[in-house]
Structure formats: structure tokens, C-alpha cells
């Protein structure tokens, strides 16, 4: 759709505003994999309630919007093997690198963090290569 980039920009500003509030008011980095991962491996036990509240917001608001009639689609693959391999890779990778698109991408780049910029280049680069090979060479994506 020709208007997609406007929605992208508006949604992006909302994401950045959320990250700014979480940083300035709560003093925390809004990184999805870090907030979730800290609950999973126990490293964030001291701030567990705050993490759970954040996750409730992330899951709850879009769910409510769709329930209330917001039109959207996920276009998620139904290939279970692909879902499991990708999920494992994203889970291990983001914890190993200590960040994902929100932590390294949004919060890191805006701080001119070398780690954030290098990580973003690495996951984008490997994403482009994987997409090229997976879609245009092997035809599995």
C-alpha cells in the first residue's frame, strides 16, 4: 500500500516514545529480548514484576486492538519446522548478543553505541543473506 511508510513512521514514533518514557522515567533500556530473557534465565528476578507488567502491555494492547476490530494480518508461516528453527535461533541469538532490534537497534543506535551499531549491521546483514538464499536460491522462505 502506498501509505504504508506513513503508518511505519507513526508506529516508529510510538515505539521510540515508549522507549524514551521507559528510559527517562524508569531508568531502563527498552529491549524486548532483555526484558523477556531476564525473566527466563533468572537474571532479572529483582525486577520481575516490572518486566511482567511491560510484557502484559506489549501483548495486551495489540490483542485488544485486534479484538476491537483493528484490521491487520500476521502472514505467519504455517511451516512448524521453520517456526521452531527460527524461534530457537532468535532466542539463543538475542541472548548471546545481549539485544535485539529494540535494544541494539532503537536504543543503541540513538545513543551512537558502537555495540548497538555493530550488532544491527550483523543481524541486518545476515537477515539479507538468509532471505536471499532462503527465498531466491533454496525457495524455503
Amino acid at each position: 500500500m502506498p501509505l504504508d511508510w506513513i503508518y511505519g513512521l507513526i508506529g516508529g514514533l510510538m515505539i521510540g516514545t515508549a522507549a524514551a518514557i521507559y528510559l527517562l522515567v524508569s531508568g531502563r533500556i527498552m529491549g524486548a529480548s532483555g526484558i523477556l530473557g531476564g525473566l527466563i534465565d533468572g537474571s532479572g528476578r529483582a525486577t520481575a514484576v516490572e518486566r511482567i507488567a511491560f510484557i502484559c502491555g506489549v501483548i495486551g494492547v495489540p490483542s485488544f486492538a485486534v479484538f476491537a476490530g483493528y484490521q491487520t494480518q500476521t502472514n505467519l508461516t504455517g511451516n512448524v519446522a521453520l517456526l521452531i528453527i527460527a524461534g530457537l535461533a532468535v532466542g539463543v541469538g538475542t541472548r548471546m548478543a545481549n539485544g535485539c532490534t529494540s535494544g541494539h537497534g532503537v536504543c543503541g543506535i540513538s545513543r551512537f553505541s558502537v555495540r548497538g551499531i555493530v550488532a544491527t549491521c550483523a543481524y541486518l546483514g545476515f537477515g539479507f543473506v538468509t532471505m536471499y538464499l532462503g527465498r531466491h536460491v533454496l525457495g524455503v522462505i
Binding site: 535461533a89 541469538g93 548478543a97 550483523a122 545476515f126 538468509t130
Partner: peptide, 10 residues
């Protein structure tokens, strides 16, 4: 880690 993440993301 970022490479692995990029792979799964794609």
C-alpha cells in the same frame, strides 16, 4: 549472536 538472530528473523 546477532548473526544467528538475523538468520532466524529472516
Amino acid at each position: 549472536g546477532s548473526a544467528l538472530f538475523g538468520f532466524g528473523w529472516a
